[in-house]
Every structure is written in structure tokens, then in C-alpha cells.
């Protein structure tokens, strides 16, 4: 059982890194909408990794039918991180990351579900990437990843 958990957690970290690298490569290739998707999920995967590895969360806490995330899995993951990292950084900074992530979340939903919404410029895609990369850097610092 322990082996399985370790394996899931490691996969999350690897997938997260891969998605962030992909986000940058996609911007460089002009695929801005797909880049946002990768950047956002890279953050979610990293946060899940951190919560499971360092904060006693379990994979099933993030299942759709878990009683803990009634308001939605993504909201639950983002909210849990804010509470978790408030110990390591100021609550103000934690809430700024929460706001940034929620903005990317909302933009991701627009892009994925509404055909008329698209990212038109490299500048816009880079802004999203930058926000996600900042969150990665902060978590790498806090958890010594």
C-alpha cells in the first residue's frame, strides 16, 4: 500500500514538472490555449503532491465524490494549499497565490469550454505561465523540492 502511495505521489511531481515544461514549449510554438491548460494543471498536480507528501492528505480526498470537496475538487485543492502554506509564508502572500490560481482556473474554464474565448497573444499566454511558474518556485522553496 505504501509503495503504491509513494508511486502515485512521485508520478504527480513528474507530471507537474512535465506540464510546466510543456506549457513553455507550447508558448514558444504558438499554441497559447494548450499552454494555459498545461500551466494550470502543472500547478494543481504540484499542489496535490505537496498536500499528500507533506500535509497528511490522501489521494481519495481529491476524488469527485469525496465529502471534503463539496464545492469542487479544484477549489478544494487550491483552498487547502492556502491554509497549508500560511504556516510558511505570510497569509497575505498565500492569499495572493490563491487569487492568482483562481484567475488561471477561471481563464482555463473559459478557454476549454467556450469556443469563442481564446488566448490571442504570446504576452497573455506568458502572463499565465509566469503566474504558474511563480507558484512552482514558491513551493520548491518552501518544501525544498
Amino acid at each position: 500500500m505504501l509503495k503504491i502511495i509513494i508511486s502515485i505521489v512521485n508520478h504527480l511531481l513528474e507530471k507537474s514538472k512535465e506540464n510546466l515544461i510543456s506549457a513553455k514549449l507550447l508558448i514558444d510554438s504558438g499554441f497559447y490555449n494548450s499552454s494555459l491548460h498545461c500551466a494550470y494543471y502543472s500547478c494543481l498536480q504540484l499542489i496535490k503532491y505537496v498536500l499528500i507528501e507533506f500535509h497528511d492528505y490522501y489521494e481519495f480526498d481529491f476524488d469527485n465524490d469525496s465529502t471534503k470537496n463539496k464545492g469542487g475538487t479544484h477549489k478544494y485543492i487550491i483552498g487547502s494549499l492556502t491554509t497549508a502554506i500560511s504556516i510558511n509564508i505570510t497569509a497575505q502572500k498565500a492569499n495572493r497565490y490563491k487569487e492568482d490560481l483562481n484567475k488561471v482556473k477561471l481563464r482555463r474554464e473559459e478557454i476549454d469550454y467556450f469556443p469563442q474565448k481564446i488566448i490571442k497573444t504570446e504576452d497573455e499566454a506568458s502572463k499565465v505561465y509566469q503566474k504558474c511558474a511563480e507558484i512552482h518556485i514558491e513551493l520548491i522553496k518552501i518544501y525544498n523540492l
Binding site: 470537496n69 477549489k75 478544494y76 487550491i78 483552498g79 492556502t82 491554509t83 490563491k98
Partner: peptide, 10 residues
């Protein structure tokens, strides 16, 4: 956030 940790205000 204190009152609604899992909800979002942007």
C-alpha cells in the same frame, strides 16, 4: 478566505 477557505474571490 477566513470565512470561506474553499471558495474564491477574485
Amino acid at each position: 478566505s477566513t470565512q470561506f477557505p474553499y471558495e474564491s474571490l477574485i
